[in-house]
Design a protein around this nucleic acid. Structure first.
Lengths: 114, 114
DNA sequence: TCCGTAGTTCAGAAATTCGGAACTGTTGAT
DNA sequence: ATCAACAGTTCCGAATTTCTGAACTACGGA
């Protein structure tokens, strides 16, 4: 397995962030990570809405979030702990993440972990 | 030519906005429209950065912006006047558009019309 | 009516995304 | 040490989406 790539704060590009969060499934994962203080793992995520997300897709979602600079992933034993980079991001792009989460929050659908 | 579709304010979805603006070319067009108070047209746009954007691509960019709810297009004689829906949008998604434009604004590249 | 300009639509090539199956790496049990 | 189970990744073919040149439509002026 290749080592995980995380962009440096100054290399994070707005288009990558918008792209990553333009997928409602990914946005829901990110929102869930923002909420759950602990480092969320793929398997802890369970289901988001109706659909069961195949694990290869889930893995890809985390990869997109990671490489866009939205989250930090770290292997911890057998599982992968993920946390948002919200504080850093708000420094670089003031108000952006919050505005996006708020925008999504206005819709009925909520992320729900089982 | 089919009549132009514009979503009602309440039908505008955050994912559509993020998707539309996750393309730097489209974001630059939108930023340019936000700046230029007048209704910008395709041909007034000229060039954005290095690349000359083919007009079919340009037409498609405007369509994506329009159908995501970001801009209002109106035929005026032979040309199409476009303006942003910033005020409305800020009501529905407070702070979102501004934060996105600010995020892009931090990068060196500027939209430039010839 | 005929021409030029502004923009749209069409269609095929290229690129991207999706997801099942196989694989890797880690832990714990025997 | 070997094995099994589990968490997640990678691979790769199918489906979808994007891109753009060429053809087309719409309008205005001469």
């Amino acid at each position: 397995m290749r080592p995980l790539f995380h962009p440096a704060l100054e290399d994070i590009r707005p288009e990558a962030i918008l792209y990553a969060l333009s997928d409602p499934e990914r946005a829901a994962i990110f929102a869930w990570l923002s909420g759950a203080g602990c480092g969320g793992t793929c398997s802890a995520l369970g289901q988001l809405g109706e659909r069961v997300i195949p694990k290869s897709s889930l893995s890809n979602h985390f990869k997109v979030l990671r490489e866009s600079g939205l989250i930090l992933s770290e292997r911890q034993g057998v599982e992968m702990r993920n946390q948002t980079r919200c504080a850093e991001l708000d420094e670089r792009f003031p108000g952006l993440i919050k505005a996006i989460l708020t925008a999504y929050g206005q819709l009925p659908e909520q992320p729900k972990a089982d």
